[in-house]
Simulated assay, not measured.
Amino acid sequence: MSDTPTPDTDIPEDHKTQEPRLWRDDGWTARIIKNEDDDGWAVEMTKDGEAEPALVGPWTMGRDKKNPKPLDAPAFFTLVKTANEVLRRHEQQLHATLHKSVKIDAAAGRLTIKLDIVPDEDDPYAVLSAYDESGDQLAQVRVAPTYKLNVQRASEWAAGGFGSHG
């Protein structure tokens, strides 16, 4: 074993910041900021390595009604849980946007037709594919990323023998 630190991180694992307006721990940074919209305060939660905060929300005033309430461990861990949930919902939403499927009844039986969009910056495209009830792929074609999958189009594609364009 060597004592060399791992090169893929610039912050040691045990590096924690616990200040009234800045907490860094568990892969997250919570920062209390002035709320642009009013006289109050906001908190932004940023995951390590990300440029944009995953979550920005209102923050409670302190007792003096001027300064923000200081961050503490329970508040920080609640913020981490909330920010992780926001990221998870965003990933699920993105997945739902990029991967759609419909089930149809065709001559070959009950089929699942899938549309998977590949959001490549230079050459976005989508893949339309058909699967039988046991999950075996029957056909696959490349289509425009704007292709709209619905039961009628899937049925027409299957009825047409899975021609090159759905």
Rank of each mutant, 00 (worst) to 15 (best):
S2P: 06
T4P: 01
P7A: 11
P7D: 08
T9S: 14
D10G: 05
P12C: 11
P12M: 08
H15Q: 10
T17C: 14
T17Q: 15
T17A: 15
Q18C: 15
Q18L: 15
E19R: 15
E19G: 13
E19I: 01
P20A: 11
R21C: 11
W23T: 06
R24P: 00
D25E: 14
D26K: 08
D26T: 06
W28Q: 05
A30L: 11
A30M: 09
I32W: 10
I32T: 04
D37A: 15
D38F: 05
G40A: 07
A42Y: 04
V43S: 10
E44Y: 06
M45K: 07
K47E: 10
G49F: 09
G49P: 10
E50F: 15
E52A: 11
P53H: 09
L55P: 00
L55W: 05
V56N: 02
G57H: 04
P58L: 12
W59L: 10
T60G: 05
M61L: 14
K66T: 11
P70E: 05
D72V: 01
A73G: 10
A73D: 14
A75T: 08
F77G: 03
F77D: 11
T78S: 10
T78C: 01
V80M: 06
V80H: 05
K81L: 07
T82C: 00
N84E: 12
N84T: 07
E85Y: 05
L87M: 13
L87Y: 02
L87I: 12
L87T: 04
Q92T: 01
Q92M: 13
L94E: 15
L94C: 02
A96I: 02
L98H: 07
H99Q: 12
H99V: 01
S101D: 15
S101A: 14
S101M: 09
V102T: 08
I104T: 06
D105W: 04
A106S: 14
A108L: 09
G109D: 02
T112Y: 03
I113D: 03
K114Q: 12
K114R: 14
D116L: 09
D116F: 01
V118N: 11
P119T: 04
D120L: 13
E121W: 07
E121P: 12
E121Q: 07
D122I: 02
D123K: 09
P124G: 08
P124H: 09
V127K: 09
S129E: 00
D132E: 08
E133S: 14
E133N: 11
G135W: 09
Q137F: 00
L138W: 04
L138G: 06
Q140H: 05
V141P: 03
R142V: 14
V143L: 02
A144Q: 08
A144N: 08
Y147N: 03
K148P: 01
L149V: 04
V151F: 01
Q152L: 10
Q152A: 12
A154Q: 03
S155Y: 00
E156F: 04
E156Q: 12
W157Y: 09
A158M: 07
A159K: 10
A159I: 02
G160D: 09
G160P: 05
F162D: 03
G163K: 14
H165Y: 13
